[in-house]
């Protein structure tokens, strides 16, 4: 019997992050994502030329809101973002994702110059490509992003996050300093498209954009996020240029925010050890998003990362491709 195969007319854009010495940067490796011309891992139907990659999350402050189970393994380094990043690299991260939570006015309210310094230190301490994300406060981001972007000039970082209400500064910086951009939308395929249209109206190349569709963690509406990602990807394969971008997702943030990952064994003895539980929660969230089509997964716990890597390898090696 012959398999019924879906024939798609288009494919996801290929995006390269990180610049090596030859390309004017200082990275030893660079990362390429995207290029799929089929739904995730359907190797019999089409090609997935680049394997999904994992970025490890680093903050510019002590991770006060992280539960102990995930913060403790980094307690030896989390006072120094550069050391923290280095540790992530040794743990096998494909990229480092630096989030400027500490720059938020409610936290340390760090200056643009301080932020730029953090970026420079991390670039000096690591060799893998970098993702840099602002603090999430529009006014503050518009203040720090130019300095951050400038500090990473020529390194082809992935800069985030552009939203419908605040995209102009970040896109202008990325344009000037040769970076790619994360376009965020609130679990809404139409808004995802709208942000991309707005960004491309500033003459920014569509293949330099990554979509952050915004997701929930396991148990928090993940199936809805899954269907939004699937719809967007079907749109991309059906030649909708405004949706043909790779996805970036944040299962680390989402999973470790959930009650199920945060409650300790003392509070809920029947739920068992919280570290194991948290790791499983992060891994399961990440795995679901991987199957929905995620290209870049930003994660936290080393064990969750290692296990997801195994899954990706299994799904991407010759054995896996035969299934």
């Amino acid at each position: 019997m012959e398999l019924v195969k879906e024939k798609w007319v288009s494919k996801v854009n290929i995006l390269s992050i990180g610049a090596t010495g030859e390309e004017g940067g200082t990275r030893k490796t660079k990362v390429q994502v995207g290029g799929e011309d089929t739904l995730p891992f359907l190797h019999f139907e089409g090609k997935m030329p680049h394997r999904p990659v994992i970025a490890c999350e680093v903050l510019d402050m002590v991770p006060e809101n992280w539960p102990q189970a995930v913060a403790k393994p980094y307690s030896d380094v989390y006072r120094d973002p550069a050391k923290w990043a280095k540790k992530c690299e040794t743990q096998g991260a494909d990229l480092i994702c630096l989030t400027f939570t500490g720059a938020h006015p409610d936290n340390n309210n760090s200056s643009a110059a301080d932020c730029a310094k953090v970026v420079r230190n991390i670039l000096a301490a690591t060799t893998v490509p970098l993702i840099v994300i602002g603090c999430g406060n529009d006014d503050k981001d518009n203040e720090i992003i130019p300095a951050i972007s400038e500090a990473a000039k020529g390194e082809n970082v992935l800069l985030g996050k552009a939203t419908q209400d605040n995209y102009k500064t970040i896109v202008a910086c990325a344009s000037a300093d040769g970076h790619a951009v994360i376009a965020e939308s609130p679990i809404d395929i139409n808004i995802a498209k709208q942000v991309n249209v707005l960004i491309s109206d500033l003459s920014f190349a569509l293949d330099r954009i990554v979509i952050d569709p915004t997701t929930g963690g396991l148990g928090y509406g993940l199936e809805y996020c899954y269907s939004i990602m699937e719809r967007a990807r079907i749109g991309a394969l059906g030649a909708d240029k405004m949706l043909a971008m790779p996805f970036i997702v944040f299962p680390g943030q989402e999973a470790w925010r959930s009650k199920e990952a945060r409650i300790t064994k003392e509070e809920m003895p029947q739920w068992g050890d919280e570290e194991k539980r948290g790791i499983v929660w992060e891994l399961t969230t990440a795995l679901s998003l991987l199957l929905a089509g995620a290209d870049i997964l930003v994660m936290r716990h080393a064990q969750a990362i290692a296990n997801l890597k195994k899954v990706i390898n299994a799904l991407m090696n010759e054995e896996g491709k035969k299934c």
Partner: peptide, 15 residues
Amino acid sequence: MDEYTKALFLPHTDL
């Protein structure tokens, strides 16, 4: 609702 969100753009999300 889907059509409405699509139309919340000038002129439309699907240009």
